[in-house]
Design a protein around this nucleic acid. Structure first.
Length: 719
DNA sequence: ATTTGTTCTTGTCGG
DNA sequence: AAGAACAAAT
C-alpha cells in the first residue's frame, strides 16, 4: 500500500487503527483520502474482513466514492464494507429486524412533506387550528423530542405549564401511533428505532456490535444525539471508533446536529487520540486566509492553524450589481472569461444561500447558452405527477400506507372526497385490518355514497391489478400498468396545456430512469426502488454525471465538494446571513460557518457578488451588503465594479450606527407604515433607490404627501 | 351533504 | 407552484 502520498499527520491517522481516534480535519485537508486509506490499510495489511468495517458518511455519494476507490485496491471485496449514511445503514438493519419492534420489513419511510401532512391531519382531528399551533413548529418539536430520545410514553403532560406544550405532546403521541399503524417511519425513527431495537433485543445488538470491529464516522460535527448513542452502543464492543470532522463546518444544528459530539469526543471515548490535519491541499493562500479571517469572528471555537503551501493566487473578486439580473450577467461574463482562460464549465459552481435564488441564474444561463445543472432544489421527485405515481407504488407495497392512499384514492377524480376517506380510515380501526382490507370491506357494504362506492371499486381494481403485475414483473411494468389503468397520461394529454405537456415529459423521464436502473441491476425491486428514493440526498444527483456543465446548488449542498472557481452570490443582509438572524441573533455563528464552508469550496478563484436591489415576493427590495463583508480584510479583495464598492461597506457601517435599534434601508418598501421624527405617522407610497440613499414618497396622516430621504430622516417602522 | 372548481396566500437550509 | 380557504355545483 502506498503511504508516500500522505503527510505525517495523515499517515498517523491511517495507521492508528486500534482504540478511539478523533481526526480534526480542516477544510481541504484530505480527510476523505485518510478515511479511504485507513480502510484500505485495515483490509489489505491487517486482514480485516470488509463486512466488519462500518463507515458512516454524510451522503450516499460519499459512500459510493469510497467504495469505488477501494475497489481499485481491494477488488470486489470493497462492496462488502458497510458504508452509507446513518439513515441508509439503519434502514438496512431495520429491514432485517423490523418484526422485533412491531413493524414489518416493508415499512415505508416518510419524508418531510409526508410528516407535515400527517401532522396537519392529526391537528384537524383534534380541532387544533393552524393559528394555535404552527404545524411546522410541531414537526420540529416532534423531531426534537425524538432526537432527545424522549418517547411519547416518557411524556407526562402534567409537567407542562403551557397549553401549547400539552397540545404538542398530544399531537406527538397520536403522530407516533399513526406512524406505527401505517407501518411507516420518519427519518428520525430510522435511528431512534434502531436504538430501540438494540436496547430491547440484546442479541441483535450483540450481533452487530460484534460484527463491526472498526467504526468510522465522517462529518462528525453534524451528527446528533441519537447518532451518538447509536455509535456508542456499537463501539462498546471493540472500542475501535474513528471520527472525522471540523467544528467550523457544523451547519446543520437546525436539524438536530450537536457540536458537543465532536467537542466531547475525548471525554466520551476513553483513551482517545486526537490528530489535527491542518495542511490544506485545496485552496490558494488568498482564499484560505479569507476563510480564516472570517471564521475567527466566531466565539466558542478552538483555534486552528489551517495553512497551505500553494501560492497567493488571485484576489477574491467582489462585485456589487445593480440588481439580480446584472448579478447573473456578471457571473455569465466571468464564466465566459474563465472559459477563454482554459477552464471547463464543470470547474465552476454557483453557490447560493436559498434555492429561490437559483431561478435567476437558470434563466440567464439558458439565454446565454451556458450549460448548467442544478443540484437539489425543487426536486424532480417532488413534482406532483411523480409524487402521485410514487404514491401508487407505495400503496402497492404497503397496504397500510394511509398517506399514500389518501393522496391517490381520488386521483383521477372518482368521487371519493375527504369525508369518505375519513370513514374509510375509521373502518380500518373498527375492523382492525389494513387500510387496503378496509377499502375492500367498504366496497361490499353500504358505507359510502353511490358515486364514491363505484369509484372505490374502480380504485381497488387498479391496486389489485398493480399488485398482481408486481408479483412477477419489473418496476417499470408496474408503473406502466398504473399509468394506463388510471389513464394518467391520457388525462394530461387531453388538457393540451404546456404545463400538462411538461408533466407528461416528466412521467416519461421517470419511466426511462427506472428502465435504466433495471438494465443495470437485474435484482432491482420495487422495494429497493422506493427505499433508494426516500434515502437519496441532493448530492447523489451528481453521481455518474459527466456533462461539462456549471453546477448550481445551495451552500449546504456544496458541503464536502470542491471547485476550481466558485461564485458566492446574493451576499446580502436578509439573504446571507438569512433574515432569520433578526429574530434569533444566536444564529449568526452558524451562518458564518456556512460562509466558511462556502469560501473553502474554492480551489483557485472565488467571486462574491451582491445585488443592491432584487425582486422578492413581487416587490423590489433593496438590500445592504452582507455584514460579513466587513469581516473581510480589503487586502484579499479586488473590487470589480464601477459602482460603489468601498462606499457600500462604509454605508453599511453608517446604517448600522444610525439605525442600531431601527431598521435598515431595505425595509422601506411601498405600503410600509412608518413614523417620522417631525411629520408623524405615514405610509410609504413609492420608493426610489438612489446611489447611496433611498428616497421615499410618503403619505403622512397629518402633513400630506412628502418626499424624504431615508438617510436624512429619523424613521421608524410602525408594525 | 359532499365533492369540485376558483381565488388567495405563502416562501431557509435537507437525510 | 402548491396547498388552504372559500364558493359553487351535484
Amino acid at each position: 500500500m502506498d503511504l508516500a502520498m500522505l503527510n505525517d499527520r495523515q499517515r498517523e491517522a491511517v495507521l492508528h487503527t486500534e482504540g478511539a481516534l478523533l481526526v480534526m480535519a480542516g477544510a481541504g485537508s484530505g480527510k476523505t483520502r485518510v478515511l479511504t486509506k485507513r480502510i484500505e490499510n485495515l483490509i489489505v495489511n491487517k486482514g480485516v474482513m470488509p463486512y466488519r468495517i462500518l463507515a458512516l458518511t454524510f451522503t450516499n455519494k460519499a459512500a459510493n466514492e469510497m467504495k469505488d476507490r477501494l475497489r481499485q485496491t481491494c477488488g470486489d471485496k470493497a462492496d462488502m464494507i458497510y458504508a452509507g449514511t446513518f439513515h441508509s445503514i439503519c434502514s438496512k438493519i431495520m429491514r432485517v429486524n423490523a418484526e422485533r419492534i412491531g413493524y414489518t420489513s416493508n415499512f415505508v419511510i416518510y419524508d418531510s412533506s409526508d410528516q407535515l401532512s400527517l401532522i396537519k391531519s392529526i391537528m384537524k382531528d383534534f380541532g387544533i387550528s393552524d393559528k394555535t399551533l404552527n404545524p411546522k413548529k410541531v414537526k420540529s418539536d416532534i423531531s426534537n423530542f425524538k432526537n432527545a430520545l424522549t418517547m411519547p410514553s416518557d411524556i407526562d403532560e402534567e409537567n407542562f405549564a403551557l397549553d401549547e406544550e400539552v397540545l404538542v405532546a398530544k399531537v406527538y403521541k397520536m403522530y407516533d401511533k399513526k406512524l406505527k399503524d401505517y407501518n411507516a417511519m420518519d427519518f428520525d425513527d430510522l435511528i431512534v428505532n434502531t436504538i430501540k431495537l438494540f436496547k430491547e433485543h440484546s442479541d441483535v445488538l450483540d450481533k452487530y456490535g460484534n460484527q463491526f470491529r472498526y467504526i468510522h464516522v465522517d462529518e462528525y460535527q453534524d451528527t446528533n444525539m441519537t447518532q451518538y448513542v447509536l455509535i456508542s452502543l456499537l463501539a462498546s464492543y471493540h472500542q475501535n471508533i474513528c471520527v472525522v470532522g471540523d467544528q467550523d463546518q457544523s451547519i446543520y444544528s437546525w436539524r438536530g446536529a450537536d457540536v458537543r459530539n465532536i467537542r466531547d469526543f475525548e471525554k466520551d471515548f476513553k483513551g482517545a487520540k486526537t490528530i489535527l490535519l491542518e495542511q490544506n491541499y485545496r485552496s490558494t493562500k488568498n482564499i484560505l486566509s479569507l476563510a480564516n479571517e472570517v471564521i475567527k469572528n466566531n466565539g466558542d471555537r478552538i483555534e486552528k492553524n489551517l495553512w497551505t503551501a500553494y501560492d497567493d493566487g488571485k484576489k477574491i473578486a467582489y462585485y456589487c450589481a445593480e440588481n439580480e439580473t446584472a448579478e447573473a450577467q456578471f457571473v455569465i461574463n466571468a464564466i465566459r472569461s474563465a472559459k477563454d482562460r482554459g477552464f471547463s464549465y464543470s470547474d465552476i459552481a454557483v453557490l447560493y444561500r436559498t434555492n429561490a435564488q437559483s431561478f435567476e441564474f437558470e434563466t440567464a444561463f439558458k439565454r446565454a447558452y451556458i450549460p448548467h445543472k442544478m443540484v437539489g432544489g425543487l426536486k424532480f421527485y417532488d413534482r406532483k405527477e411523480i409524487k402521485d405515481l410514487h404514491s401508487y407504488l407505495r400503496a402497492v407495497v404497503n397496504d397500510d400506507d394511509v398517506l399514500a392512499y389518501q393522496r391517490i384514492i381520488n386521483k383521477p377524480i372518482r368521487g371519493i372526497g375527504a369525508k369518505s376517506v375519513e370513514k374509510l380510515e375509521n373502518l380500518k380501526y373498527l375492523e382492525n385490518v389494513t387500510f387496503f382490507e378496509a377499502l375492500k370491506i367498504a366496497s361490499q357494504k353500504e358505507i359510502l355514497s353511490g358515486k364514491a362506492k363505484k369509484g372505490l371499486a374502480d380504485f381497488i381494481k387498479i391496486i389489485e391489478g398493480a399488485k398482481k403485475v408486481a408479483k412477477s414483473n419489473q418496476v417499470s411494468k408496474v408503473l406502466e400498468y398504473i399509468i394506463s389503468a388510471t389513464k394518467y397520461r391520457d388525462e394530461l394529454k387531453a388538457e393540451e396545456t404546456h404545463e400538462a405537456k411538461v408533466r407528461i415529459e416528466n412521467i416519461d423521464e421517470l419511466l426511462s430512469q427506472i428502465m435504466n436502473r433495471e438494465s443495470l441491476d437485474e435484482n432491482f425491486t420495487l422495494e429497493n426502488y422506493l427505499e433508494d428514493l426516500s434515502l437519496a440526498s441532493d448530492q447523489d444527483q451528481l453521481d455518474g454525471i459527466d456533462d461539462d456543465a456549471v453546477l448550481m446548488m445551495t451552500l449546504h449542498t456544496a458541503k464536502g465538494l470542491e471547485f476550481k472557481l466558485v461564485f458566492l452570490v446574493g451576499f446580502e443582509e436578509n439573504i446571507f446571513p438569512s433574515a432569520y438572524v433578526k429574530e434569533d441573533p444566536s444564529l449568526i455563528d452558524e451562518e458564518r460557518r456556512l460562509l466558511y464552508v462556502g469560501i473553502t469550496r474554492a480551489m483557485q478563484e472565488l467571486y462574491i457578488t451582491h445585488a443592491e436591489q432584487r425582486f422578492k415576493f413581487g416587490k423590489i427590495k433593496a438590500n445592504n451588503p452582507s455584514r460579513f463583508l466587513d469581516e473581510m480584510p480589503d487586502k484579499y479583495l479586488e473590487c470589480l465594479t464601477n459602482r460603489r464598492f468601498f462606499s457600500s461597506k462604509i454605508k453599511a457601517k453608517k446604517d448600522a450606527e444610525k439605525f442600531t435599534s431601527a431598521d435598515s434601508f431595505d425595509d422601506y418598501s411601498s405600503g410600509t407604515k412608518i413614523k417620522h421624527e417631525y411629520f408623524g405617522k405615514g405610509v410609504v407610497i413609492r420608493r426610489k433607490d438612489l446611489d447611496d440613499d433611498v428616497e421615499l414618497l410618503v403619505a403622512f396622516d397629518d402633513k400630506g404627501l412628502k418626499t424624504i430621504r431615508v438617510s436624512m430622516s429619523n424613521l421608524k417602522i410602525v408594525y
